[in-house]
């Protein structure tokens, strides 16, 4: 029997991988988007596990909304990325450093 804490540990590991990926990754912006998705997956795991063990459906409803928003978010993210590629000719993290001071 998988217990609640097993799910929570799994989700926190996924969460940490996502967060670490964002800070360590210095090459590609697509990887950043994937890391953001990992964070959302961790959150969804949390919500569903809690929902199951609490016997309360609100958490599962929440997950539906997170999935929908995540899809919209990625659509906008990739659209911005396409624009960036058009104006800069590259999607490396290094090219996004013209604004500073």
């Amino acid at each position: 029997m998988v217990s609640l804490s097993d799910y929570l540990i799994l989700s926190s590991i996924i969460f940490c991988i996502g967060l670490a990926g964002i800070f360590i990754n210095r090459t590609n912006i697509i990887t950043l988007l994937m890391c953001v998705e990992l964070i959302l997956v961790a959150v969804n795991t949390n919500f569903i596990a809690f929902s199951h063990f609490l016997g309360n459906e609100a958490g599962q409803i929440f997950v539906f909304f997170i999935l929908t928003v995540a899809a919209a978010e990625v659509a906008i993210g990739l659209a911005i990325l396409t624009l960036l590629f058009r104006v800069r000719g590259s999607i490396d993290v290094d090219v996004t450093n013209s604004l500073k001071g």
Partner: peptide, 24 residues
Amino acid sequence: IEAALKYFVLGAIASGLLLYGMSM
């Protein structure tokens, strides 16, 4: 475009953190 991308990436991370807190 660069500003939009930076705002997007950091905003998405912030929403992720907020959601993690909400799930807890």
